[in-house]
Amino acid sequence: MEKAIKKYWPVFLLPTFAAFVIGFIWPFLWGIYLSFHKFVTVSKTTFVGLDNYFSVFSDPTFVSAFWFTAKFTIVSTILINVLAFALALMLTRGLKGTNVFRTVFFLPNLIGGIVLGYIWQILLNGILTNLGLPLLALDAKYGFWGLIILMCWQQIGYMMIIYIAGLQNVPGDLIEAASIDGATSMQTLFKVKLPMVMPSVTICTFLTLTNSFKLFDQNLSLTGGEPAKASQMLALNIYDTIFSRSGAQWKGIGQAKAVIFFLLVVAIALVQLYFTRRKEVQQ
């Protein structure tokens, strides 16, 4: 069987592999290579060793983008997961209209980041003006909370769906047993349901962490990094460094930022998976 299939590898494997090399492997390796070089066009590069990496940390826009992103990621991950879990609990009680609620809450997730950003820009600027406050693009504090609201609106429905699937898999007899033993509904929630849905918690925190950390489209359309790059997140900062800043050194520094960004994402993913996997219980 194996041999007979193996003969056909050019048909089965080659198209995907070739595209994968073009679309991922080659750009990835080339990107690492370029991060050690100074260049304006890719045909003429000079090796500069780790200079680009040192320059990254002395670039104040990168440092401020890092802290903005870190704060944003923590706040949005906690808010989204707590709210999504609360909604999932309410929607698994068998209330009237559960299907309608679920449909509505999930809807924003299908709208793309750029469009979402403009929808909220119009809405939030309207509210701010009517309250006599500065517009989103004029104060990074409002930009930050605007992004948080937007992110919650978009992601809560998605995470809620995953939590609902998890809650529906909790065996009924476990909850029954807890209630016979005299557990209050709070005890049932924290001692039975929550440990049983830990796999869903792992997935949802992983998704919200990485989505928030890598956020680009929403950042670009809602605030565009204004005012003066104060609401710029890491992904937008890298884009801005590579494509918009004038000066021969910036492309190489931007690519070095991208490598650091990649390492941060991998680190977050690994640490998070390690910690939440430990808390999962075997069914």
């Binding site: 991922f24 080659w26 370029l34 890719v42 590579i242 991208a258 490598v259 960004f261 990649f262």
Partner: peptide, 15 residues
């Protein structure tokens, strides 16, 4: 796991 920013510049050149 790899963010798009890591490959965006080189990918656009390759394309």
């Amino acid at each position: 796991v790899v963010p798009f920013q890591m490959v965006m510049f080189t990918l656009s050149k390759t394309a």
